[in-house]
Structures are given as structure tokens and as C-alpha cells.
Amino acid sequence: MDHLAFLTWVRGTGLDIALSLFVFGVLWRLIEIYGLGVKKDLSEPRAGEAASGWHTIWRRSFPQKEAMMKSPVTYAGGIIFHFGLAIVVLFFVPHILLIKDMFGFGWPGLPSQVIDLVTVVTMVAMILVLVDRLVKPVKRFLSTKADYITWVLTFMPLLTGWLAVQHLLLPYTLMLAIHILSVEILLIVLPFSKLFHAFTAFGSRWYNGEVNGHKGVAV
């Protein structure tokens, strides 16, 4: 298969397969998890202002001072790479064109120099959190193969996308095809790995906040 045929496949059939599996996987997992249900809390709720599901969804996006001091790399690296990923995925003009092509609507993008910079910063942040995972005893202890595999799967789209735009290492067509393929692999794995926290973190924060709200704990 030549480069162009490869690119055509990942853009067509490959993307269709990946997106289908992604949508199926997300729905399957959401039903698998939230279909289990929770028992109604029969204790009398405390009146007054307190935490709530919505509050905690928002609040946990920011560190508490003490936790921030103890895990600065986890927090700073984590926040930077999550925001960086979102910016690169959602505001790189070719990505928006793809979305417009598929769904019929789009939004203004950011200049490519800005995306370039954000990509590099995001990759550096990801490398830092990986080093932290290897160096910090607790994180190293908790880490499984899946933690390292998902890191690679998340890093690859960033790296290959950046290399493609910079015309580095491999011919552009081939690099672009590899980039798209790496995204497709990520999409397929996401629902069935810890990457699914992209969905469940909101549910978890909601549940946690709901309990604290019920008890009247002001968080």
C-alpha cells in the first residue's frame, strides 16, 4: 500500500470503524457503569448551603493548596496537558474543518503558530508527568502496564501531528496517515481503559458532591 492509499484508508474506512467502536464503547461502558444504579438515601438531608454535584464537578478541577504543594508535578503537569490537549484537538484549523465536514458546523480556530507552541508545551507536560510517575514512589507503586500504554496512546497523536505539520522525520502523507491512525487507536481504547475517566470523572465528582451536599458539608 502506498502512502496515499494508506491515508485514504485511515481517513475513510479506518475512521468509520474507529468512530463506530468509540461510540459503541462509550455507550456500552456508560450503561455498564451507571446502569447498576444507586440506592436512595433515606437519611434526612441537612438544610442550608453546602456542596453539591455541580459544585464538586467544578471545584475538583482546581487543586487544594495542601495537595498542590505535595504533588506539584501531578497537578501542574496534569492541568497543563489536559488544557493543552483540549486546545490542540478543538482549535487547530484542520481539525475544525474535519468536524465541519462530518457534522456540518464548525468554529474559528487559532493561528497555527499558537497551536505549535501549545503542542510542544503539552508534550513537555506529558513527559514531566511520566517522569514523575517513574520517580515518585507512590505513583510508581500504583502504576500498571495499562498506565504506561495509555500514556503512549495519548502521546502519539500529539507527537505525530506535530511531526506532520513540521514536515519532519517521514514524508508528510505517511506521517499524516500515521497521525490519524494513532487517533483512531486512541478512540478505540478510550472507553475500555482508564482514559474513560474523560467521561466518568464527571459522574464520580457528581456522586461525591451529592453526598457532601446531603450532609451539609461546605467544601
Partner: peptide
């Protein structure tokens, strides 16, 4: 095991931040 527990386990990213909150660690 209920939805809460399923959601919690599906969300953990092994960041280790809970360790620093625990006096035994």
C-alpha cells in the same frame, strides 16, 4: 457494588494524590 463504585474505579488514573491526604502514608 453500585454505580458509584463502578464510576469511581473507572475514573481512577493512579495519580497518587490520595496518598498525601492519608496520615498512614
Amino acid at each position: 457494588i453500585d454505580s458509584r463504585i463502578a464510576s469511581y474505579f473507572s475514573s481512577c488514573v493512579h495519580c497518587g494524590i490520595c496518598a498525601d491526604a492519608c496520615l498512614f502514608y
